[in-house]
Design a protein around this nucleic acid. Structure first.
Length: 693
RNA sequence: GCGCCUGUAGCUCAGUUGGAUAGAGCGUUGGUCUCCGGAACCAAAGGUCGGAGGUUCGAAUCCUCUCAGGCGCGCCA
């Protein structure tokens, strides 16, 4: 017998709006619907019968035989009502028996109310196929903005950036699948220190002319992002050798910010070429963007000046007249902020406590200041806007736009004006993200501050073993550590494209051994889908606050809890139908009548089928949970468990050789339902299903 | 010094914001196949949930203390 696979779901909240919405567009959300219906019935009964408001949790019993849904509410009520919990549970159970869709209600243990659903009725509602992508245009509730990737445009993307993009992109897919309108922004810090460093490298270290850099950036064979990766590491050493050289960087940085200088032109060449490389890398992973807002426009369109005025007006910042921050504009520390741990008590001695410098004494604005301006713009609160021009067109015809200082061509969508903003940024920037939110709050935009979500995640580091494999030398002290932090400055890390290439190679070997008779482009396509599936799943299976100590062995694995495992389950399901056709058979959906469902889902013979179907139906609740907790790993886990459930079923039951025609049709129907949900779930993870494996 | 995060099986990680007998993958050991393709399936072994108190019907989950590790705390981004 297969084991029961516990699925982590609960229903603290009801989803009336979602239910209505999905009914309207025809997406099957049977599970959430049942859950909220029962929740509501229980709440109403408790209020009517006992006159108390109860928090009605609906979850699942520990074992399937005990029921489909569980309500552990009687124990809590027992205290308030001063009556035995089991007695209360009996009364609740009796009340819930009359709820449509409930077949049976038991009382178990200390006072759990366990519900058994009407299997056939439930199954009949799962008939409607999911309408993929039917969501974006019709959702209510305003636009959500998700900012992710945000790689400094001065070097190739590395494995840590891939985690950011995979999380951000998956979150976007989840939101869209749940009917939200989403705008994806990838912020480009094209005037920062990191770009300046590479410019210094080209102009001073390599003594290159503007045309040389332009030519190099155009040359596909040069792998410009890789070239800059190495150059950046060299510049870092160059600057470290002689502190006087730092002046070179400062001057370059200033020239870049001014614009119209040689350094600015080279910076533009470098950052634009690198961004194109980044987009290409991310596209390999099925990651796309709508808009690339750039720091240069934030500067040139004077977004900061506008934000500065607002902040002064509301006295959110003030000019420090004494102490170490004399001459700077600093942000006050409010009570609310202090609660959230913002402030710097290390400076208690010199009067600079609980403040954050926003404008330096030389008049330039810090990174946080620019970020506050950008965040205000995202909510449509700045009173200024970017101009836009098309940056690139994706193979599917969609356009990525980039910010511009002048009116551009084309007709861009109405960017910005978000109702809620998710910033996918690693956990080390928590402090700064809090200051940004505190800035909004100080301006009186408390609601927007609350709707500024820092989608925080931990870094990807390298395991010491991984460093060995890559020939990275470690000190004795480093060797003792559980992981080694990647460093762009040192050129220490795994480049995203290298990892992808290696995965492709491994996948291709596997495909070759199984499909030696197939054309090579077929094999390449499949190998690529498998490689991407493996990588995206690997990056998504860990919860956000888990540090991933990168390990080749685990990342290159195609067995066990991996993307390919899930892909394989879908391929198997589809093979059944393909084989059926080859044999001249036909799947007739209409043959699966309510009576057929009734017959084959009935306990106990139908338990295995029901379990699988029930599990497959929980797609909606998982997506909702992942959104509410900003935890895409829940979806990855679900995909794996459902695939596992299917693989087990696949082994236990022969379908094509089934003699009972009604049973055969029922089994095919079940496979179809599971395949459908698995495909949808993989799509949420940005993973495609190969034609064969 | 202050703040945040983490500690669960040999290893890597889940664990439904307090619920019933703590789960998975890998690894180990032993099984399954004239098959809808084995990138699969089944089983076994393996856990004082870092430690100590507390809160209550009930704690891996909440509170306090403590030990260990990580990350932040700049007129860098």
């Amino acid at each position: 017998m297969r084991k029961y696979l516990p699925l982590s779901l609960s229903a603290r909240h009801s989803y009336p709006n979602s239910v209505r919405y999905f009914k309207r567009i025809g997406i099957s959300i049977v599970y959430l619907f049942m859950q909220s219906r029962i929740q509501q019935a229980a709440r109403e009964f408790v209020l009517r019968q006992y006159g108390v408001e109860a928090s009605v949790v609906v979850n699942r019993p520990p074992r399937v035989e005990m029921g489909d849904l569980a309500l552990p509410l009687a124990m809590e009520l027992a205290r308030k009502l001063r009556r035995p919990p089991r007695q209360i549970a009996e009364e609740v159970a009796a009340a819930l028996r009359s709820v449509a869709g409930v077949a049976k209600a038991d009382v178990a243990g200390a006072g759990y109310v366990n519900l058994f659903l009407d299997r056939a009725a439930y199954a009949a509602q799962l008939g409607a196929p999911l309408e993929a992508g039917a969501s974006a245009t019709t959702a209510a509730g305003g636009k959500l903005i998700v900012e992710h990737t945000n790689i400094n445009p001065n070097k190739a993307a590395h494995i840590g950036h891939l985690r950011n993009a995979a999380l951000g992109d998956t979150f976007v897919r989840l939101l869209r699948a749940r009917g939200h309108t989403v705008e994806v922004q990838n912020y480009i810090d094209n005037t920062g220190v990191q770009v300046a460093d590479v410019v210094v490298g080209f102009l001073y270290l390599e003594q290159k002319k503007e045309e040389d850099v332009a030519r190099l950036a155009q040359d596909p064979a040069a792998r410009f992002d890789y070239y800059c990766w190495d150059l950046y590491a060299r510049v870092t050493r160059f600057l470290a050798e002689d502190s006087a050289r730092l002046e070179l960087r400062n001057r370059t940085l200033q020239e870049i910010e001014e614009g119209h200088t040689l350094a600015a032109r080279v910076a533009e060449i470098v950052s634009t070429a690198i961004v194109r490389r980044h987009l290409a890398t991310m596209l390999r992973l099925n990651v796309r963007y709508d808009l690339l807002p750039r720091e240069s426009e934030i500067l040139h369109l004077r977004f900061w000046d506008q934000a500065f005025e607002l902040l002064q007006e509301k006295r959110a910042i003030y000019l420090e007249t004494e102490g170490k921050n004399k001459g700077c504009w600093v942000m006050r520390q409010t009570e609310g902020n202090r609660e959230q741990g913002i402030g710097n008590s290390a400076e208690e001695e010199d009067g600079g406590q609980d403040t954050k410098v926003i404008v330096r004494s030389n008049g330039t604005v810090t990174y946080v200041g620019k970020d506050i301006a950008y965040q205000l713009w995202k909510f449509g609160l700045l009173g200024k806007n970017f101009f836009y021009r098309p940056f690139e067109t994706y193979p599917d015809g969609r356009t990525v736009w980039v910010s511009s200082s002048e009116p551009g061509s084309g007709s861009p969508p109405a960017f910005g004006q978000g109702q809620k903003v998710y910033n996918v940024i690693d956990v080390r920037q928590s402090y700064l993200q809090k200051i940004v939110a505190a800035g909004l709050r100080a301006l009186g935009y408390t609601e927007q501050a609350d709707r500024s979500i820092h989608f925080s995640y931990e870094m990807v580091a390298l395991s010491p073993r991984c460093c060995d494999e890559m020939g990275i030398e470690l000190s004795a002290e480093e060797r003792q550590r559980p992981f080694i932090e990647v460093s762009g400055r040192k050129g220490l890390g795994i480049k995203a494209d290298d990892l992808l290439d290696r995965l492709l190679e491994e996948a291709y070997k596997e495909v070759l051994s199984r499909h030696s008779d197939q054309p090579d482009d077929f094999r390449r396509r499949i190998a690529q889908q498998i490689a991407i599936g493996a990588l995206r799943y690997f990056l998504l299976r860990y919860t956000c606050n888990t540090i991933i100590a990168f390990d080749f062995h685990e990342a290159l694995s195609f067995e066990g809890e991996t993307g390919p495992y899930v892909q394989y389950a879908v391929v198997r399901a589809r093979n059944i139908f393909r084989k059926l056709e080859e044999e001249g058979g036909r799947f007739d959906e209409n043959a699966v009548t309510p009576a057929v469902l009734e017959r084959f889902l009935a306990a106990p013979e139908g338990d295995a089928f029901w379990e699988l179907l029930y599990q497959a139906s929980q797609w909606d609740a998982v997506a909702e949970l992942a959104i509410a907790t900003t935890e895409p790993a829940a979806v990855a886990k679900y995909a794996f468990q459902l695939a596992q459930g299917f693989n087990n079923f696949y082994h236990r039951f022969r379908i094509l050789t089934e003699q009972d025609e009604a049973r055969k049709m029922f089994l095919l129907w079940l496979v179809k339902r599971v395949e459908d949900r698995l495909t949808t779930t993989l799509d949420l993870l940005g993973i495609e299903v190969p034609e064969a494996m």
